[in-house]
């Protein structure tokens, strides 16, 4: 059961796109962060059940967030949504504990497909 969601992206438009694409069954509060530091504050304060995370961000990037969560042994499922589509970016993110990687621009249904595959729906 997903009780709260965190969407992290420095672009307001991207956050809106992600929120609009969330499964309608998730009638849960959505928290938003525009950089990695804000994201970690929300993780500590609100304990979201799933995180949608961009990689290229100011202050602290997505790799930094994943590394911090790994260090804290925080097992919250993280789905990376990034424009950095290099194989190495994917491997680094998965290596740091991301559960899935969606490439930008997202296709319709990408988020739904991934959360279903991860058993979050």
């Amino acid at each position: 059961m997903i009780k709260s969601i965190l969407v992290v992206d420095d672009s307001k438009m991207s956050r809106k796109l992600v929120i609009r694409a969330l499964p309608e069954e998730w009638d849960s509060p959505v928290h938003q962060a525009s950089n990695g530091l804000e994201a970690l504050d929300i993780v500590h304060d609100k304990s979201p059940d799933v995180i949608f995370l961009d990689l290229t961000m100011p202050e602290l990037d997505g790799f930094g967030v994943l590394a911090a969560l790994q260090k804290e042994e925080n097992k919250v499922p993280v789905i990376v949504i990034s424009a950095d589509v290099q194989t190495e970016a994917y491997e680094r993110a998965i290596g740091l504990g991301a559960r899935a990687f969606i490439q930008k621009p997202m296709g319709p249904g990408d988020i739904r497909k991934v959360v279903q595959e991860l058993g979050l729906l």
């Binding site: 672009s11 290229t56 990034s82 424009a83 950095d84 589509v85 290099q86 930008k104 621009p105």
Partner: peptide, 9 residues
């Protein structure tokens, strides 16, 4: 940003 991701790749 998205376009540069593709260029970077």
């Amino acid at each position: 940003n998205i376009a540069m991701g593709q260029a970077g790749d």
